[in-house]
Amino acid sequence: MATLLYSATASLDGFIAGPGGDMSWLTEHLTGPDPTVERLLDRVGALLVGARTFGGDDPNRGTDREGAFGGRYHGPVVVLTHRPAAQAPPGVTFAGDLHDAVARARAAAGDGYVNVLGADVARQCIEAGLLDEVLLFFAPVLLGDGVRVLDHPGGTQVRLEPLPGETAHWYRVR
């Protein structure tokens, strides 16, 4: 069964997007190959994406690097939304229920990873006990405001343990 992984690049003060979902800050920090990203990209079988992320800002908009993983991901995408478009773009499926979206993404990913994109979808997956792993990359910038890596006011503590042999910020949800 596919592993459900939330991965994101964050500022050192814990934001994955600036105010209003602005991602332009990230462009200068996407500076070339990263062995962890390469390993992950080889194993991603599907994306599970929130509606705001799917329709939101892209630091590479209008370039050949637009899209997930700098435009290098070309596979199935499941978008969790209560307002699906009348017609889905090729390779995109809309789902209105978290459990249905996860099931569709896991089926599409096979034995690979379902990479969760979007802090709200990651929060929902944690609350439902569905998230298996978390991988964070950090950019040397302080944004001061925006979309937090994970915002779970009043939530309960979630214990993580480092994955043996992986980068310093790749964890298994306990």
Score class of each variant (00 low, 15 high):
residue 30 L to V: 12
residue 32 G to V: 14
residue 32 G to P: 13
residue 33 P to G: 14
residue 33 P to E: 15
residue 34 D to A: 12
residue 35 P to Y: 10
residue 38 E to W: 09
residue 38 E to L: 14
residue 38 E to N: 10
residue 41 L to A: 15
residue 41 L to C: 13
residue 43 R to G: 10
residue 44 V to F: 09
residue 44 V to G: 13
residue 44 V to I: 15
residue 44 V to Y: 13
residue 45 G to Q: 14
residue 46 A to S: 15
residue 46 A to C: 15
residue 47 L to S: 06
residue 47 L to V: 12
residue 47 L to G: 07
residue 48 L to Q: 11
residue 48 L to A: 12
residue 49 V to T: 15
residue 53 T to F: 03
residue 53 T to P: 11
residue 53 T to N: 13
residue 55 G to I: 00
residue 56 G to N: 10
residue 57 D to G: 11
residue 57 D to R: 10
residue 58 D to P: 10
residue 58 D to E: 09
residue 59 P to R: 07
residue 60 N to C: 14
residue 61 R to G: 13
residue 66 E to H: 12
residue 67 G to A: 12
residue 69 F to M: 14
residue 71 G to I: 08
residue 71 G to D: 11
residue 71 G to V: 12
residue 72 R to H: 06
residue 72 R to P: 08
residue 74 H to C: 05
residue 77 V to T: 15
residue 77 V to E: 10
residue 77 V to W: 01
residue 78 V to Y: 05
residue 83 R to S: 14
residue 85 A to S: 08
residue 85 A to F: 00
residue 88 A to Q: 03
residue 90 P to V: 05
residue 92 V to W: 01
residue 92 V to P: 02
residue 93 T to L: 05
residue 93 T to E: 10
residue 95 A to V: 00
residue 97 D to I: 01
residue 100 D to Y: 00
residue 100 D to T: 08
residue 100 D to G: 00
residue 101 A to K: 05
residue 102 V to R: 02
residue 103 A to N: 03
residue 103 A to V: 04
residue 104 R to E: 08
residue 106 R to F: 03
residue 106 R to Q: 14
residue 106 R to V: 08
residue 108 A to I: 10
residue 108 A to H: 05
residue 109 A to V: 10
residue 109 A to P: 08
residue 111 D to K: 07
residue 113 Y to W: 13
residue 114 V to T: 05
residue 114 V to A: 05
residue 114 V to Y: 02
residue 115 N to H: 15
residue 116 V to Y: 02
residue 120 D to S: 13
residue 122 A to S: 08
residue 123 R to E: 06
residue 123 R to L: 11
residue 124 Q to R: 13
residue 125 C to P: 00
residue 127 E to P: 00
residue 128 A to P: 04
residue 129 G to W: 06
residue 130 L to E: 07
residue 130 L to K: 02
residue 131 L to I: 05
residue 132 D to I: 02
residue 133 E to Y: 02
residue 134 V to H: 01
residue 134 V to P: 01
residue 135 L to P: 00
residue 135 L to D: 05
residue 135 L to Q: 08
residue 136 L to I: 11
residue 136 L to Y: 07
residue 136 L to S: 07
residue 138 F to G: 01
residue 140 P to S: 09
residue 140 P to L: 02
residue 140 P to G: 09
